[in-house]
Design a binder for these strands. Sequence first.
DNA 1: CCAAAAATACCGGGAAACCAGTAGATAAAA
DNA 2: TTTTATCTACTGGTTTCCCGGTATTTTTGG
Lengths: 216, 216
Amino acid sequence: MSLMNDNIVLAIVDDHPIVIEGLRTLLKEEPQISIAGSFTRGKDFMDFLQHNKVDLVLLDIMLPDTSGMDLCRDIKKLSPDTVVLALSNHTERSIILQILQNGASGYLVKNVSSTELLNCLKEALKGEIAFSKEVKEIITRPSQHEFKQVPTLTKREKQILQLVSQGKTTPVMAQELNVSPLTIETHRRNLLQKFDVKNVAELIMAAVQHKMITGF
Amino acid sequence: MSLMNDNIVLAIVDDHPIVIEGLRTLLKEEPQISIAGSFTRGKDFMDFLQHNKVDLVLLDIMLPDTSGMDLCRDIKKLSPDTVVLALSNHTERSIILQILQNGASGYLVKNVSSTELLNCLKEALKGEIAFSKEVKEIITRPSQHEFKQVPTLTKREKQILQLVSQGKTTPVMAQELNVSPLTIETHRRNLLQKFDVKNVAELIMAAVQHKMITGF
DNA sequence: CCAAAAATACCGGGAAACCAGTAGATAAAA
DNA sequence: TTTTATCTACTGGTTTCCCGGTATTTTTGG
């Protein structure tokens, strides 16, 4: 886990060049941290990670290409010892828990102060879970409907969900995806089951609430 | 307007220290630009502006204390010659137009590259309207659902919509409201018609997008 | 008061969604 | 390699949704 290493290799994945620049500047002050690279696309980082050792990643969970959630999982799969710190502006409890579920070691909202950022980095490297102040409050204040955790969907299911939200009917989807309508029906059934709902109306609502469909 | 001035006084208003740091670093390279200050709260900047001349403000329109919209208007009222460049992650057309309405000279999404940022700064100082690449596309391509205005629903229809979003079926709603299921069907039909959609999935999505059902 | 809007209700019919159970093929993980 | 997860596909059936009309009663607003 490179706990006691005095030299920590860090990477930044964020599609905002300004944020990257800011992080670089702030972290440059810390001699024990060396920045291996910064990436605006998830795929680029994964390529990098294939050939390089990275101790800690600052990961924006809202990226253009991949979902940050999936990327986080991919990172931990490829390199389990790499500590992932999620960086985002979202303050929904479900999102925070979801990213933790996917292997992140902490969650920072982007309005952290520089000192807060460094503290969290240190905590995360010690193996602890690190939250910025605001996030801690969100975590400790649970809300009603968040008891049932966010269901994990397969690739195909996500795809079907998206199409359903676009008003596509089963036969239409079957044609588009070149599979039997009966197959689509099965996926639909599984979606309803996983979300614990009875029909599309509830399904869409649940998906929207968990931000699993964008809407735009 | 300080068009031809070789020394441009710039200020940054953003509640993300990281972003501020990034902007500072990027702009430090430009000798003709001097950064008068950076502020995480709108009020602080207004106090500063009272006693100092500022040529250009980079303004995050999502601030904790004031709405960026209001702040922009306040800035232009107090110091009409100060050029305001909005900085945000929102990509909704309506938001962009709104901030321009309030006196901003341009709009940048935060994922601008450093060169793009500098170009926009220069354009804005020349008195032009400056947009980052992504924003230009949004402006020129008005999106579908913004054409058709938000449908006006009757009391009953709102009620039905709410119930539908809760997964209630026609017979269930009929019982709850003590009317014939056929009546409910008619209301449903009218809802689909008003929203110009084919089925519940689309209906819910449209309603969510127009914020006509809360979700929570 | 009277016209417009809204809420109510009906018919018939076709399409789609939902339910319960089963199961082969393949791909990924242990 | 064996297990597990995922994607695929089927049978057979019930329920609900969606579409095309039409039409009466209340409510509401000018």
